[in-house]
């Protein structure tokens, strides 16, 4: 009997500690909990690394913000922001009009073209005709899903929680092609699996309305102070060379885009 009560007491205590533990108020910067190399992925010691993680940390440092990287499921990342579980989204989220109805964005911090990857020698073309009747994998609720649904009406769209899973199914041959950010796809094509099976079939036709002006930090509406700080931070690291220093190990071109 006593053991049961003390177990219950322990559980209560643990939860109160858990509920109250996160109250020190650092800025919670969210990355998607699903790996998205080379932007953000966990390593074997459980730390989050990648270009976007480095960049977010640099912006925080430039503006003397106390930031903590918090992984959140991509599926619920906007609700998590609006319900105050996180403060900033740094998850390669493209700035789109649809999203701007719900949340606010900082200035863009990178912008890259959109490409399609398919099996080697497939001969597919990244056009509506070329994709007709094919199975295209995309990450769910991304600009790529919107683009594929709008421009490739005759293709079968399969949605994944992460780009990683779409890549995996392309390797397994379950989908014919996948559309994503060119950089993410390049990283995949450099991996052992990717280089063995697949190749890029080129970039898709631009559509600013769907693809947006680039990637920015997402934040709650009305937090204009924070927004100003993040913009100033992005500007500062662009100017003092930190941005280039961070990008160099990852990319051999200017990821900031035009």
């Amino acid at each position: 009997m006593k053991t049961l009560i003390s177990t219950l007491g322990l559980a209560v205590g643990m939860t109160i500690a858990a509920l109250g533990g996160a109250n020190a108020d650092p800025l919670r910067v969210a990355v998607a909990a699903e790996p998205y190399p080379p932007f953000a992925s966990p390593d074997a010691s459980g730390n989050w690394t990648g270009w976007e993680v480095d960049l977010a940390k640099a912006v925080c440092k430039a503006e003397k913000l106390d930031c903590v990287i918090t992984p959140v499921a991509w599926d619920g990342i906007i609700p998590a922001l609006t319900s105050n579980k996180i403060d900033v989204i740094a998850a390669s989220m493209s700035i789109t009009p649809e999203r701007e109805k719900t949340i606010d964005f900082s200035d863009k911090y990178y912008n890259t073209p959109t490409a399609i990857v398919a099996a080697k020698g497939s001969g597919y073309k990244p056009t509506p005709e070329g994709m007709s009747g094919k199975i295209i994998g995309v990450q769910v609720s991304t600009i790529h899903e919107d683009y594929v649904r709008k421009h490739f009406p005759d293709a079968e769209v399969r949605t994944y929680q992460t780009q990683d899973e779409a890549n995996q199914d392309l390797v397994a041959g379950r989908i014919d092609a996948t559309q994503a950010d060119k950089i993410a796809l390049d990283a995949f094509l450099e991996s052992a699996d990717g280089s063995a099976c697949c190749e890029s079939i080129g970039e898709v036709a631009p559509d600013v309305e769907v693809l947006g002006p680039g990637v920015g930090f997402g934040l709650r509406k009305g937090e204009d102070d924070l927004k100003a700080k993040l913009n100033a931070g992005i500007k500062a690291i662009r100017e003092d060379g930190t941005y280039e220093a961070i990008s160099k190990p990852y990319f051999n071109f200017d990821i900031y885009g035009g």
Partner: peptide, 20 residues
């Protein structure tokens, strides 16, 4: 795992995804 809490199933998938 579906809401992104780092329990066993989610970290397993992260590990599996990272190493294939």
């Amino acid at each position: 795992a579906v809401v992104g809490f780092a329990e066993l199933t989610l970290v397993t998938r992260q590990a599996a995804g990272a190493t294939k």
